[in-house]
Design a binder for these strands. Structure first.
Length: 267
DNA sequence: AATGGGACCTGCGCGC
DNA sequence: TGCGCGCAGGTCCCAT
C-alpha cells in the first residue's frame, strides 16, 4: 500500500479500535516477516501485553505496548491490516485480541516487516527520516531543495529527504505543480517549489479524507477500499488525455520506477 | 554524494 | 488453454 495517507488512515482507525485491547495470542503464519528476533521469542514477548497507543512516522506504523515495548510495522508494497473475526486471506501474522477480534497483518508479496523494539526512535529508518510534509513550514520546505542536484521525483520519494511520499503521490504532486519528474531539484524556481508545497499539502489532506488509494492490495482496517483513485490525475493514465491540456499522458522509467506525467504541462 | 541495478516476494494481465 | 514476460504504491545493499 502504503504511502502517508494510507498509513495515516490505518493509524487513526487502529486508535479507535485496538487501544487498550490485550494481545491474547499471536499466530505466525509466515515467519519471514518477523525481523531480528526469533519467532518464539517474539511470541512470548508480546503475549499478554496491552496496546497502549498507535503512532506513525512516515510510512512506519508503531503499536505502543505496555512495559516499554514497541511493535513496529512496515507494510512495504503490498501489506495491509484488517481487523475482523476471522483469519483473512494472505494473513502472515495475526494478533488475537481480548475482544475476540483478530488483527490480521496481510501481505500478498510478503515484503512487509515487523520489528519488536524497546525504543522505536532508535531504529535507523526513523533516525534518518526526513521531515513530515504536513508539518514542515513552507520556507523550510523550500530550503530542502537548495544545492540538490538529483532529479525531483526520486528526491521527494527519498524518505531521508521527505517522509511519507511514494510513487503515487509524488507523481500526482508533480503534475499538480507542473514540474517534470526528471528536472534537477536545484534548477526549480522558488515559485514552483512553493506551488509544489501547496500541491503536496492539498493532495495528502484530500487523500487522507478519502482514506487512501486502493489501486492494489491496500484496504482500510475493515476491509473497505480507499476512495482516492478517481481523483488521480496522472498515475496509471498512460495514453489518456491530460485533464488540463488534453495531451496524452506518458509513462517512462525514472530511477527504475514507472512514472506518469504530462509532457506538455510538466516542464 | 548520487545513481543504477539487483534482491527480497507473489500475483495479475497481457500477448502469443 | 498455457506460458512467459512485464509490471506492481518500498527499502536496502552493493558497485561505480
Amino acid at each position: 500500500m502504503p504511502e502517508l495517507p494510507e498509513v495515516t488512515t490505518i493509524t487513526s482507525q487502529l486508535k479507535g479500535s485496538v487501544v487498550n485491547k490485550k494481545i491474547k495470542d499471536v499466530i505466525i503464519k509466515d515467519k519471514r516477516l518477523i525481523k531480528a528476533i526469533p519467532p518464539k521469542k517474539f511470541k512470548s514477548k508480546i503475549k499478554g501485553k496491552t496496546i497502549k497507543d498507535i503512532l506513525r512516522r512516515g510510512k512506519v506504523l508503531v503499536l505502543k505496548l505496555d512495559q516499554k515495548l514497541f511493535f513496529v510495522i512496515h507494510l512495504r508494497i503490498s501489506g495491509w491490516l484488517m481487523l475482523s473475526k476471522k483469519e483473512e486471506q494472505y494473513a502472515r501474522v495475526i494478533l488475537a485480541l481480548s475482544d475476540n477480534k483478530l488483527l490480521n497483518f496481510c501481505d500478498m508479496r510478503a515484503l512487509g516487516e515487523i520489528k519488536l523494539v524497546e525504543d522505536w526512535r532508535k531504529l535507523p529508518i526513523i533516525k534518518t527520516m526526513g521531515p513530515e510534509p504536513l508539518e514542515i513550514k513552507k520556507e523550510n520546505f523550500i530550503e530542502l531543495f537548495k544545492n540538490r542536484k538529483a532529479m525531483i521525483k526520486p528526491l521527494i520519494m527519498d524518505q531521508k529527504f521527505l517522509a511519507g511520499l511514494g510513487n503515487i503521490y509524488a507523481q500526482e504532486a508533480l503534475f499538480c505543480a507542473g514540474i517534470n519528474p526528471e528536472r534537477k531539484a536545484s534548477s526549480i524556481k522558488k515559485e514552483k517549489l512553493e506551488k509544489l508545497y501547496d500541491c503536496l499539502i492539498s493532495i495528502l489532506k484530500t487523500a487522507i479524507t478519502k482514506k487512501g488509494s486502493s489501486s492494489n492490495t491496500y484496504r482500510q482496517l475493515d476491509g473497505a477500499q480507499g476512495s482516492y483513485i478517481p481523483l488521480l490525475k496522472v498515475y496509471q493514465r498512460e495514453a489518456q488525455p491530460c485533464f488540463r491540456c488534453k495531451t496524452l499522458i506518458k509513462r517512462k522509467v525514472t530511477a527504475s520506477r514507472g512514472t506518469y506525467f504530462c509532457p506538455q504541462c510538466q516542464r
